[in-house]
Design a protein around this nucleic acid. Sequence first.
DNA 1: CAGTGGTCTAGACCACGCT
DNA 2: GCGTGGTCTAGACCACTGA
Lengths: 243, 243
Amino acid sequence: MGNGSVSALPLYLRLKEILQEHIETGRLQPGDRVPSERELSEQYDMSRMTVRHALTELVNEGVLVRQQGRGTFVGRPKIRQALAGLTSFSEDMQARGLRPGGKVLSLQIVQAPRKVRTSLGLDESHWVVRIERLRLADDEPMALEITHLSAGRFGGLVHDDLNHTSLYRLMEEKYGAKVTAATQSIEPALADATLARHLGVREGALLLLLERVTYDSNGVPTEYVSSYYRGDRYRFIVELQRR
Amino acid sequence: MGNGSVSALPLYLRLKEILQEHIETGRLQPGDRVPSERELSEQYDMSRMTVRHALTELVNEGVLVRQQGRGTFVGRPKIRQALAGLTSFSEDMQARGLRPGGKVLSLQIVQAPRKVRTSLGLDESHWVVRIERLRLADDEPMALEITHLSAGRFGGLVHDDLNHTSLYRLMEEKYGAKVTAATQSIEPALADATLARHLGVREGALLLLLERVTYDSNGVPTEYVSSYYRGDRYRFIVELQRR
DNA sequence: CAGTGGTCTAGACCACGCT
DNA sequence: GCGTGGTCTAGACCACTGA
C-alpha cells in the first residue's frame, strides 16, 4: 500500500522522535505508561507493526521498558544513559561540560613497537604513524595520548593539522576508515617524570592508563592508543547491562 | 493465520539459533553473505517479516551486519565479543580462566553513609545491610568488595550464607530483585594499611577502585558496591561500540 | 536491469496481568 | 473478560548496489 507520506523521514522514526520529545519535555515522566500500541497506531494513523518498530528501538535504547500484559513504560532516567559508547576525547569532555583542547607534541613515522604490531596485526618491520598529543579540558592538561596507525594507510597524516581537526574525522573523510568499535583496557598507573611534567602533576601521582584498539567498519584493527589520564581529575564511567 | 507450530519456541528464535549454529560450526564464516531474507523465508517456510525479526536481533547483537542493496553478512569475530556486560565477580573470573572464591569479612546492618544514601535514593536515617567480602581468584586475594543494600528489602541477608551462594542469585530468588543494569565508575587508588593487609600487597600499592550502582528490572537503584582491585593482577576491559 | 535490504499495511491468534 | 504486549502472515512499494 506504500507510504503516501510527504516527509522524507520514515514513519517509525517520526513516532520515535515524537515520543522522545514527550519524554524530554516531561510530558511523559519516568515510570509513566506510554499509550498502548493499538492506541498509538490509531492516534498517529499507522499500522501496529510500524508502532512496534518505533517502540522496539526505544526499548533497545533503554528509553522504554515493555511489560507483557501490562503495558510499555518510560524507563528510569539513570539507566538510559550512554551504554559504553565509543567516544572521542572531545565528545567525552563535552559530555562532562568541559571545553576540550589539544596540542600535538610530536608526529612522526616510526617502526612499530611489538605491542602495536600484535594489537594491529602488522608484520615485523612495519612502519606506523606515531602521534603524541596532550589533551586539555578547560585549558588544563587532562591526559597524554599516544596514537599509532599503520603508515601504509595513514602516512599522509604527517601533513595534516591535528591541532584543529579531529583525528577520527580525518580518518573517515580523508582515508575512508570509519571507526565503529573498540576494545579498551583500564589499569592504574603512576606518573613518571615526563608524564608529571606534561600533565602538571607531581611525580608519583595517580593516573589511569587506558589502552584502546579501534576497529573500522570492516572489523580491521586500525588504531592503537595509550592514554594516561590524571587520576585526580578523570574518572572512567561505564554503563553496564545484564545480558 | 496463527502459527500452527509444534515446538514451543517462536519461529524467529528458531531461525536465530540455526544461524548462530552455522556460524559457530564454521559453516558460515566471518564476512560470508547470509542467504537473502527472501531466500531464508522460502527455505524455512516463514514470512519475510519473521526472518527480518531474527536477523534484526542478530544485527543488534553484532553477529550480523546488514548492507542495503548488497546483503547481510557475518560480522568479524573481534567485534562481536562481550559489549560491556554486567557480570558478577565469579563470572568475570571464570571468563578469565581463574577459579573464583570469596570470604565474608563482615555482615551487619548499619546506618547508610551519605554516599550510599544519595546513590540508592534513600532518605536519611535509612538502614542498610553492609557486606564486606574478600574476593579470591585461584585462592589469591584479588579484590576487597563492600556492598550496601537497603535493609528494608534485604535485611534477611544477615542470615544467609554468602560464602557459598551468589549474592545476585539470592537477591533474585529470595528477594525478587533481578539485577539488570548498572552504572560503574573506575578510578585509580592506593592501598592503605588495611587494604594492603587484606589484599596481600604492600602499603601504597596500585589499586583500581570500582564503584557500582546496580538497578533491578524496574529501574530501582538497589545495590551500591565499592571494590578495590589489585592493580598488579586485574585490568578492566570494556568493549565499546560507536553509536 | 535484477536482487538486496528498508519501510509499511491490515489483519490474525497467543500469552500474560489484572480485576 | 478484557486489554496488554508477543508472534506471525502475505502481500506492497521504495532505495540502494552491482553487473
